[in-house]
């Protein structure tokens, strides 16, 4: 799957109901964001997964009917709009089934600005997660450099320990960190560009 396929290209492809790969790519890109978004609004894992499913199928339905007009707003805002309604419906149904008690902790859906902040945040997280996969599988950074980075940053070993273990100088450990960080930045920027949601 090409991580850097632009959202615009995906949306083009979605017009063709038989274009499975593009649907998959779209799904892969947005499902985790919607799930994260819903989780952030206080839904549990199962509910968040349902919301993502409903939101995506609803979106594709509306998109194919030509309801989504890129001039009207960003894709993210559109998806937030659909998800928001689904979440409100879920809560309303829950209210019917008596499960609402102490729900005041749940964020209110009133606030557009806040919802879009949460969305943006989830989108960024998704990009960072994709970046991790990308870093491991695709880039031409030496494995030793990656290992040093992982030991230092992820496992949080001291630079001296990493240097000993990897047989390099402390200076090189820090260089490895800087090199991987730069690579990470490039990947993140590339993916970020592919989310060309501005329309």
């Amino acid at each position: 799957m090409d991580l850097t396929q632009t959202t615009t290209a995906m949306l083009e492809g979605l017009h063709d109901p038989a274009n499975e790969p593009v649907w998959e790519a779209f799904d892969l890109r947005y499902r985790p964001i919607i799930i994260g978004f819903a989780r952030n609004l206080g839904l549990d894992e199962a509910d968040a997964a349902d919301i993502a499913q409903e939101t995506l199928s609803r979106f594709v339905h509306e998109y194919r009917l030509g309801k989504y007009d890129r001039n009207r707003g960003r894709l993210g805002a559109w998806l937030v709009g659909i998800a928001r309604y689904r979440i409100a419906t879920l809560r309303r149904d829950r209210a019917g089934k008596y499960n609402i008690q102490g729900d005041s902790v749940l964020a209110d859906l009133d606030n557009d600005e806040r919802l879009s902040v949460i969305w943006e945040d989830q989108r960024r997280q998704q990009i960072l997660r994709q970046a991790m996969d990308e870093l491991k599988t695709r880039t031409r950074v030496e494995p030793k450099t990656i290992s040093a980075f992982e030991m230092l940053v992820v496992h949080q070993l001291s630079p001296q320990n990493v240097a000993e273990e990897m047989g390099m100088s402390v200076h090189d450990v820090y260089l490895a960190k800087s090199r991987v960080a730069q690579k990470l930045r490039d990947i993140v920027n590339a993916i970020e560009t592919s989310y060309d949601e501005e329309g």
Binding site: A131, M132, V154, H155, S178, Q182, R185
Partner: peptide
Amino acid sequence: DNDLIQEFLGANSDRLSATR
């Protein structure tokens, strides 16, 4: 670099914490 790494770790914390 540190800011980016910090952000990166946060986003991937569930996948990374086990290896801590």
